[in-house]
Simulated assay, not measured.
Amino acid sequence: MMERTSLCLLIVLTHCSFSEAVTVSTTRHKVEVREFSEAELSCIFQTETDHNPRIEWKKKGKDVSFVYYDGHFRGPFEGRASIQGATVTLRRVTQGDAGEYRCEISAPLDTISLGETNVTLRVLVPPHIPSCEIPSAAVTGSVVQLRCSDHMSIPPASYSWYKDNQLLPHPRSANATYMMNQHTGVLEFKAVAKEDTGQYRCLASNGVGTPQMCKGNHMKIEDINLVAIVATVVVVCLLVLVCGCGGFLHRNGITSRRPYRSFWISQCHGAAHISSQNLHRTEDTSNVNYNPPPQEPQDFKHTQSFML
Score class of each variant (00 low, 15 high):
T140S: 05
V139K: 14
D196S: 02
A191N: 08
G141I: 05
T177H: 14
F189K: 06
S142C: 08
M152G: 11
W161E: 05
V143A: 15
L187E: 04
T177Q: 14
R172I: 00
R172M: 05
D164P: 05
D150C: 03
D164C: 03
A174T: 11
G198C: 05
V139G: 15
T140V: 12
S136D: 12
A191F: 13
E188M: 13
I134D: 00
D164L: 03
P171Y: 05
Y162C: 08
V192G: 00
T197I: 04
E188L: 13
R172G: 01
S136Q: 07
A157C: 06
Q166V: 07
T177F: 15
V192M: 00
A193P: 02
Q182I: 14
H170P: 10
K163I: 10
H183F: 15
G141E: 04
L167R: 13
K190V: 05
Q182N: 14
D196C: 12
T184W: 06
K190I: 09
W161R: 07
V143T: 12
M180R: 11
R147Q: 10
Q182P: 12
Q145G: 14
T197W: 05
A191C: 15
Q182A: 15
C148M: 04
A174V: 06
Q182S: 14
S142M: 08
S136H: 10
A138L: 00
P156L: 07
G198V: 04
Q166A: 14
S149V: 01
L146S: 00
P156R: 11
E195D: 05
N181D: 04
S158T: 07
Q182T: 13
N175F: 10
Q182L: 13
A138F: 03
K194T: 03
A137Y: 10
Y162D: 06
Q182D: 15
A193D: 12
R172Y: 05
D196V: 03
D164N: 08
A137Q: 12
S160A: 10
P155K: 04
A191G: 09
A137T: 10
Y162K: 10
Y162L: 08
H170A: 11
S153T: 12
